[in-house]
Amino acid sequence: MTYTIIVTGSPYDSQNSRSALFFSRALLSLKHRIDLIFFYGNGVLNSNLMLSVANNEVNLFDEWKKFYQDFQVPLYICINSSLKRGLLETEKSSLLGFKKSNIGDFFKLSGFLELLNSIQKTDRFIQF
């Protein structure tokens, strides 16, 4: 079975992100396929490479990075949600006078079209 997953929860205000991560790993271990994971609303905050957490807490940015490295599932972030939360890609950040992006390079900026195309071709759509 093939899935599309959307994450709407920020990394530390709810369990949404962590639950999506655990669920996604479980799906792949059971030989299901994930077409993409789309981060929307506060969910885009998972892509912020400047997240700083205490040593005794799980760093969800690092966990998503490891997930991507292990499984190569595309991780998309909504461009509009990103801009509203101060998350900038390299090109946009230089236009605004910043030196570099604050988005992890394994995340891709996207609009809803990518999400809608994925929903159309997959068996299940799950929201966290």
Results as ranks from 00 to 15, higher is better:
96 L>W: 12
26 A>F: 15
5 I>N: 00
22 F>Y: 09
64 W>N: 04
2 T>S: 15
112 F>R: 01
16 N>K: 14
124 R>K: 13
59 N>S: 11
42 N>R: 10
33 R>C: 03
97 G>M: 05
59 N>F: 14
73 V>E: 00
63 E>K: 12
98 F>I: 06
111 G>C: 08
98 F>H: 14
89 E>F: 10
46 N>D: 06
49 L>H: 14
16 N>I: 04
77 I>H: 01
38 F>G: 00
82 S>C: 09
91 E>V: 09
78 C>T: 04
99 K>N: 01
11 P>A: 01
39 F>N: 00
108 K>R: 12
2 T>D: 15
45 L>H: 00
42 N>M: 13
36 L>R: 05
97 G>T: 10
87 L>I: 13
115 L>K: 03
98 F>G: 04
47 S>W: 06
87 L>V: 14
23 F>T: 08
9 G>N: 13
26 A>D: 04
63 E>W: 09
3 Y>E: 05
102 N>C: 13
78 C>Q: 05
5 I>K: 02
96 L>D: 12
87 L>M: 06
115 L>F: 03
109 L>P: 03
108 K>M: 13
76 Y>V: 05
116 L>E: 04
109 L>A: 03
24 S>M: 07
56 N>H: 15
127 Q>Y: 01
84 K>L: 15
55 N>R: 09
8 T>E: 12
68 Y>C: 03
15 Q>Y: 14
7 V>E: 05
110 S>Q: 14
11 P>L: 05
54 A>P: 11
9 G>R: 06
122 T>C: 11
20 A>N: 01
82 S>G: 15
73 V>G: 00
94 S>K: 10
69 Q>M: 11
56 N>A: 07
56 N>F: 07
5 I>A: 00
101 S>I: 09
72 Q>H: 15
106 F>D: 07
66 K>L: 11
47 S>R: 14
61 F>Q: 03
44 V>G: 00
96 L>M: 15
37 I>G: 01
127 Q>P: 12
123 D>Q: 15
